[in-house]
Each structure stands twice: as C-alpha cells, then as structure tokens.
C-alpha cells in the first residue's frame, strides 16, 4: 500500500503521507504529484502528522510538489511535521520556506 492518500474537495486537495517517505516509496508519490499538479489546484495541504521517516528522495518529492503547485498559481501548506522529518526539514533549512 502506498504510504499516502489524496482527498479532493472543491476548495482544496489534501495529501496525507504516513510511515516512511523514502527512496522506495517516493516514486509512487512522484507519480501522484504528476496527476495532482496538472489539475492546477488552488490549495494543497500536505499532512505529515503520521509521517515517521523521510529521506532526501522524499524531500525531493515534496519540493517537486511545492514548485509544481506554486508554478500553476496555487498555494501549498505543509502541516504536522514532527520528529525525524521535522529535523530533516530544519537541517535543510526548508522549515522557513514551508512555514513549519
């Protein structure tokens, strides 16, 4: 089972990621991102409250989503980052860009 699920409403697209987002699971998320971005969502919420582990491949996927959504005029918000994933975002100094 992919470690993520997508929920769409008229107002926003919510992407919930759980478990480990890493080099083995990020390709499936990248495929999903390739479906999300062309829909030009106005608001995307990425919920990381259930994400336990992330590596650079997982971060790259989220950066790809962030840039894709922003480039099509939408807004992306990341919520719930904690523990190891939050430490990684801080180490990469992405916490400020993502408002974590």
């Amino acid at each position: 089972m992919a470690p993520f699920e997508v929920h769409r409403t008229n107002e926003e697209t919510t992407l919930t990621i759980r478990g480990s987002l890493d080099i083995n699971s990020a390709p499936a998320l990248n495929d999903e991102i390739d479906k999300i971005v062309p829909t030009r969502p106005q608001k995307v919420v990425v919920d990381l409250a259930m994400l336990d582990l992330i590596d650079s491949s997982g971060v790259a996927a989220l950066v790809k989503l962030y840039k894709g959504v922003r480039n099509t005029g939408g807004a992306l918000m990341i919520t719930g980052a904690r523990d190891q994933p939050l430490a990684i975002f801080k180490l990469l100094r992405m916490d400020k860009v993502f408002n974590l």
Partner: peptide, 30 residues
C-alpha cells in the same frame, strides 16, 4: 500506527544516525 522497530527514531541520536545511514545506503545502491 507506528512500527516500533522501524519508525521509532524520535530520540535525536537515533534520528541523526538513521537519517545519515539511509542516505549512505541510497548512495551506494544508486
């Protein structure tokens, strides 16, 4: 909701070690 063996790396030491190792393993495999 949490696999205690795989995902419990909340201690800063565990976080650092596991985060670093994952990247090195990725590097070798790729």
């Amino acid at each position: 909701t949490i696999d205690p063996l795989v995902h419990d790396v909340r201690h800063p030491f565990d976080t650092a070690v596991v985060s670093a190792f994952m990247e090195i393993f990725n590097n070798i495999a790729i």
